[in-house]
Every structure is written in C-alpha cells, then in structure tokens.
Computed example of a mutant assay.
Amino acid sequence: MLEINAIETYYGNIRALSGVSLRINKGEIVCLIGANGAGKSTTLMSISGVTPPKTGSITFNGEAIQSCSTERIVSMGITQVPEGRMIFPVLTVRENLMMGAYLRKDKEGIKSDEERIYGLFPVLAERRRQHGGTLSGGEQQMLAIGRALMARPSLLLLDEPSLGLAPIVVENIFEIIQQINKEGVTVMLVEQNAQMALQISNRGYVLETGHVALEGPAANLLEDPKVRSAYLGEDS
C-alpha cells in the first residue's frame, strides 16, 4: 500500500531523515519506535505532505505522492492523528468531527460515519455538544482519532496516541486501534510505548537519528536484545 524509498527530509539546513526506507502492506499495523528526535514524527509528516522530503520517493497504492499537497494526500485516503491531539478546543465535539470530513460532499455518508464514530467512542456521543477543550486527555485522543476517521482513510497515521494518558486509558486506546484495523483500516503507529506498540503490530521499524536501524516482524523485535535494552527498559 505504502512504500517509502530513501527519503531525506530537512528542517531548514538540518537533516531530520537520512535515507529512510520502509513499506506498509494493506491491512497491517506497522509501528515506528525510537528515541525522541529519531525522526518518527518527521516520517509521518513526510508521508502526509506537511514536511515533504527533498529527495527519495513515497508511493501510495502505486502513485507517487512525495510532491503532493496535504489536501491531495488526504483525499487519496491517508489521514494523520497528530502528536498532542491538536483538536479545536473552542469547537464542539461534533464540530471537530465535521472538520475531519471537510473534503467530503456525501451528506448521507458523513451522517452515517458520524454515528459510527459515536458507536466506536460512546463518550463522544454523550459529549457531542461539549467544547473539545473541556474533554479529558483520553477523550481528546478519541476525538482526534474520530476526526481522522471522518475522512474515511484507508491508511491511518497515529503519532504518539498514548502520550500523557493514564495506563487504563492507554489500554482502551490500543484496543480501539486494533478494532479500527480489523474493520479494514491500515495503521502506521508512532509510539514511545514500544512494548504495547510491538504487541499489537504485525511489523516494526526502529529509527535512530534519522535512519532505520532495525526492522522485522514485531514479535522478533520484541525479543531482540538491543530493542529490549534500549526501548523496553531491560538490562542487556
């Protein structure tokens, strides 16, 4: 579904990604793990067109997208849930969800998807008229995911969905990610909680200072001594 080939992405003169290559097959959950500053979020933003790569290629369903606008990329079926949620605090829950459907014109489909989101996140149905900024951190994360799903993505990019959340809320969010995947959405997951990310993923990539240091089936990475020492808090 998605293939990234040797991309280099810069912030000004600073190179954030150095020849990153990876792939995602339809129906998979693929995680990116690594330390802060390794390039995980930059990889997602390169895919979504926020920080396009200077060199290399990104293809989605066989079509090159590395030079496409973010709006075009969303319309093709890729949406991103950004780190820190980035919901609109002064808009209601429902208005936030409608922002996710801003490129769509199918009113009946939008209405159907809104009800689907409320089924997936019942607390959002209860709070649909409440301002987004008054929600708890976990509820805001649910709203951010729901907003992204309103665009009907075939590939969902998730950036640190567990950040700042209580453990019981994190478990709930990860269960929802798995449910979304079972319903047919391919997922690319950037996550500091390497243990949980690898447990729900098919495959994983480890980024170090802008390049891929390790890759493989998630189960294998969970048992890799380097991964266990560096990212799972275990002695080597």
Rank of each mutant, 00 (worst) to 15 (best):
L158I: 08
P89G: 11
Y231G: 03
S75Q: 14
N25H: 07
I173C: 14
G56D: 09
C68R: 04
S41R: 04
I78S: 00
D113A: 12
Q195M: 12
N181G: 04
Q195A: 14
A64S: 06
I33G: 00
I65D: 03
F88C: 02
H211S: 15
G19P: 06
Y11S: 10
S48D: 13
P161L: 08
S162L: 05
I176G: 14
L2Y: 05
I58P: 01
M150H: 05
D224V: 08
P53H: 14
D159Y: 07
D113K: 13
G109L: 09
V206C: 03
F174C: 05
V187N: 02
I117P: 00
Q141K: 06
E71H: 09
R85S: 09
I73D: 01
I65K: 03
L214D: 03
L155K: 04
S69L: 07
S18V: 08
E63K: 06
M45R: 15
F121K: 01
L103R: 11
T92Q: 04
G164K: 12
D106T: 08
G62I: 05
V74E: 03
T51L: 15
R23K: 09
L149S: 05
E208D: 13
N172F: 15
L214H: 08
A64P: 03
Q141M: 08
V93R: 00
A35Y: 03
G146Q: 01
E8A: 12
F60Q: 02
L120S: 11
V185A: 04
S162P: 04
D235F: 12
V30G: 03
I145M: 12
L232Q: 09
L158R: 03
M196L: 14
A125D: 12
E3H: 10
P82E: 13
I168P: 01
I33N: 00
V93W: 02
R152L: 15
I47T: 08
M76K: 11
E208T: 10
G56P: 05
A213L: 10
V74M: 08
T209K: 06
M86H: 15
A194S: 13
E175V: 14
S236P: 15
